[in-house]
């Protein structure tokens, strides 16, 4: 099936689905205590990929339907309870098809309990011409917890005509358990603005990405090391302390989504090394 066929596929309009994953610590490992994954969500079983931390559960999340479609409302709730450690990652990039008159929405709520570790690392969204998407991510992080959120955005016209995507509206918030807002990263952008020779990303840049590395300063990587690693991968990036002592933020821009994918992997590896003290195994996809 070609991408153009997906964009016009029948029976995929306006799905409203909610997935839920809850990890808890028990028996020396992080167990998936609750799993709800209705179509189009699909999750693998949790894997223990890291010999240095066999209690770190890694789970692949994928879409069984080939992407996000017109009017979709896809919600994910991820909870990592006290002392547990979980990494949820995407199997591949997520294509967002032409949404026509009905914007699609994707929301994620992440609750990280005391002394827990949660990571959500996502391959870039690939926005097709006419795609309009709202992405909302809300993180609540407890004392002593560590969290990683990394994602990216690219765009592509499969006809080669350079048609822009519609628009992307995003909001990522981080609160402490008392409800205090630590940071809010919000933006609205149109495909036309990014496709045109505007000054937003700079010349020859067709993708971007962000990372939030949340936790106390002594468990965070050196910002310069992140920038050096990303430079080597062709991602022009910068890392700086976040507001309210929330952690470190990373911005990166690159020529294409492939480089952002490599950047996501690199940031995850550097962050895990600083936060948990070992180099994580490559998450094969």
């Amino acid at each position: 099936m070609k991408p153009a066929d997906y964009a016009e596929g029948p029976g995929v309009v306006g799905r409203s689905r909610r997935a839920e994953l809850v990890f808890g610590r028990g028996g020396g490992r992080s167990a998936l205590m609750r799993q709800i994954a209705p179509y189009p969500f699909h999750v693998t079983r949790p894997f223990a990929l890291d010999a240095a931390r066999s209690d770190l559960a890694t789970l692949y999340l994928q879409s069984a339907s080939g992407g996000i479609y017109r009017g979709d409302r896809l919600d994910l709730s991820l909870e990592v309870r006290a002392g547990a450690a979980a990494h949820v990652t995407s199997q591949a990039a997520t294509v967002v098809h032409d949404t026509g008159a009905e914007r699609a929405r994707q929301s994620t709520r992440i609750v990280v309990g005391p002394d827990a570790f949660a990571a959500l690392t996502l391959d870039p969204l690939i926005l097709f011409p006419g795609a309009a998407l709202t992405v909302e991510t809300a993180i609540e992080i407890a004392d002593g917890a560590l969290a990683i959120l990394i994602d990216g955005v690219a765009w592509h016209d499969f006809t080669g005509e350079g048609r822009p995507f519609g628009s992307l509206v995003t909001e990522t918030t981080v609160h402490d358990p008392a409800g205090r807002l630590l940071l809010a990263d919000r933006s609205s952008i149109t495909g036309e603005e990014l496709s045109a020779a505007s000054g937003l990303l700079g010349p020859e840049r067709g993708a971007y990405g962000s990372a939030l590395l949340l936790g106390v300063a002594e468990r965070l990587p050196d910002p310069a090391a992140i920038e050096d690693a990303l430079d080597a991968l062709g991602c022009h990036a910068a890392s700086s302390p976040l507001p309210n002592g929330a952690g470190l933020g990373v911005r990166m821009v690159a020529a294409n989504g492939g480089r952002i994918t490599a950047g996501v992997e690199a940031i995850f590896a550097i962050a895990v090394e600083a936060m948990l003290g070992f180099t994580p195994a490559r998450r094969r996809k």
Partner: peptide
């Protein structure tokens, strides 16, 4: 809402 998109200048 207060929002911005400033990747190039931020970096």
């Amino acid at each position: 809402r207060i929002e911005s998109f400033s990747f190039r200048l931020d970096i």
